[in-house]
Design a protein around this nucleic acid. Structure first.
Length: 510
DNA sequence: AAGGGGTGCAACCGCTGCGGG
DNA sequence: TCCCGCAGCGGTTGCACCCCT
């Protein structure tokens, strides 16, 4: 569909149309455009061809820039911002109009996977296209794919180039660009389902990355398990909050490296530049991309205020709060694109093989020390939620055909082991999310493959994306922006959305 | 044929960074 | 160093057009 907003008007009507006689010219003062000079009332709404002509003439004579001077030097009653926008998006030469080509569409998708909502940067790589066009295209694409139940990115595109760059120095202070980047993430999905898929993709990436890191650190594999669990729960936060930070539940140093040892990661740069070593160069947690250049103290959130309007029931510090970004953790700036252009194959593809290899044979890990999680103590709200959840589960039979289907759809590969009870088999299980369970979209049971049932191959996930299924994993701790645990110190999770809704309804007085 | 919802584009709005005074 | 104005960016909104019933 294409149409023009420029109305065809005769030159006689030119100035009358310029000066506020369009229907949309009411209440047109200010609002972002400071009124200066002779034109105290600025016009808003669609541009007329006469206005376009005036602006074009002005640019011819004065060049681009100094947009606020347009008012002074012409009869145009438009604010500078409006002039700049009109020129940039419609009037400047060499603009390419019409639908995006297949190549352009693919480029946009790939760039978005790398850059996030950096429309201006994308536009630099699409000659003749404007950031506004790209943004609109992407937004409509999101809507389309949401409606179709498709993931944002096609299977061939991975959000895999993790660059937890140094632009995230602190997790406790987010302002400005950081906030905008959070919104970048949030914009990716307005519907919970879609966000879930995005988070799954995102989690997959992080999961791979984290596993990759932990693969070289014996005893640390549980980190990725838990991290994945957390990642999969972040969508609820992101879809409901505009300031969303995720508290990854990180094991204590005690859990990770034995008593006294430090929690250490390999930085991805290290992996890219050197083959994995048996005795990897140690780097502190602050070197890990997840945590930027933070000092250990920087990942402590003193008051967890970044979560949600004070809803977090704990005032205890949370260890390792990580800013959620999707997918704006990509390469920074244009160099990222250049690097990507020159390296069509994912730079980490080989490395991911190593990850897979490792994932198929994860070393045993005992995580039974809840001490690090105790920092995420449940508060009153969580207790209420817990109680409501129990009531709801009692009200609902989780073994109804529909719920069984739902359960199956949320059962991860670990179910192959059959070592963990299904949801509803015991109330206790509802509060015990076995650490090795990763609720990814279901695959045929053969997708597992080894005894651990803990095999998450990227290729398999790609297949999942092709036929995405709803993942009705809604964690109350995520909903309430907190982490919680039961008496055993394990994770709690409500794996049935209906029961969660009931729980919330009960909480809200239902 | 009509109307109501959906779709997509253009423009607006708010915010931030930067540079100059 | 601070303040102010400008340019630019990204999110949101308004509305014209399309399509289906």
């Amino acid at each position: 569909m294409s149409y023009t907003m420029v109305t065809d008007e005769s030159d006689d009507a030119m100035y009358s149309s310029i000066y506020n006689e369009s229907p949309s010219a009411d209440n047109n003062i200010g609002n972002g455009c400071t009124s200066r000079g002779k034109a105290s009332v600025l016009k808003k709404g669609p541009w007329t061809s006469a206005e376009d002509g005036i602006l074009i003439d002005y640019v011819k004579r004065h060049g681009e820039g100094n947009w606020n001077n347009v008012q002074k030097h012409t009869s145009l009653a438009r604010c500078g911002k409006s002039c700049r926008l009109r020129w940039a998006n419609h009037l400047r030469p060499n603009l390419k109009k019409g639908a995006f080509s297949k190549e352009e569409e693919q480029l946009i998708v790939e760039m978005h996977a790398r850059m996030g909502n950096k429309w201006a940067q994308m536009a630099e790589h699409l000659p003749g296209r404007t950031d506004n066009e790209i943004k609109n295209y992407w937004n409509t694409r999101i809507k389309r794919r949401q409606r179709a139940g498709l993931p944002l990115y096609p299977p061939g595109i991975h959000v895999e180039d993790l660059h937890w760059s140094q632009e995230y120095p602190s997790t406790s202070n987010i302002t400005g660009v950081d906030r905008r980047r959070h919104q970048d993430f949030l914009q990716l999905g307005n519907s919970k389902a879609n966000v879930l898929f995005d988070d799954l993709n995102f989690a997959n990436v992080l999961f791979e990355d984290l596993n990759f890191a932990t693969s070289l650190l014996p005893g640390a594999s549980g980190v990725s398990d838990m991290f994945a669990c957390n990642m999969l729960g972040t969508s609820a936060i992101s879809s409901s909050r505009y300031e969303s930070y995720m508290p990854p539940i990180l094991p204590s140093p005690k859990q990770l490296g034995g008593s006294g040892s430090r929690f250490e990661f390999q930085s991805p740069e290290h992996f890219q530049n050197a083959a994995p070593q048996k005795n990897p160069r140690s780097c502190s947690v602050s070197d890990h991309p997840m945590y930027g250049n933070q000092h250990p103290s920087d990942v402590m959130i003193p008051d967890s205020h970044t979560f949600t309007d004070g809803m977090l029931p704990t005032s205890k510090p949370l260890f390792g709060a990580v800013k959620l970004e999707l997918p704006s953790f990509q390469y920074s700036e244009t160099s990222a694109f250049d690097q990507w252009k020159t390296t069509p194959s994912p730079p980490q593809s080989d490395l991911l093989d190593s990850v897979d290899t490792y994932l198929q044979s994860p070393p045993p890990l005992e995580i039974d020390e809840p001490d690090c999680f105790s920092s995420c103590d449940t508060g009153l709200l969580d207790m209420l939620l817990h109680e409501a959840k129990i009531k709801a589960s009692a009200k609902h039979s989780l073994f109804s055909p529909s719920s069984e289907k739902s359960i199956n759809s949320t059962t991860c590969a670990t179910d192959a082991t059959q070592n963990v009870p299904r949801v509803g088999e015991s109330e206790a299980f509802q509060n015990n999310w076995t650490r090795s369970e990763i609720p990814i979209p279901t695959q045929p049971s053969s997708a597992g493959g080894n005894s651990s049932g803990y095999v998450v191959k990227t290729e398999e996930l790609d297949e999942v994306w092709e036929e995405p299924k709803r993942v009705d994993v809604i964690r109350p701790d995520v909903l309430l922006a907190s982490s919680w645990q039961d008496q055993q110190g394990r994770f709690g999770i409500v794996r049935d959305s209906s029961s969660m809704s009931d729980a919330l309804a009960l909480l809200l007085g239902g």
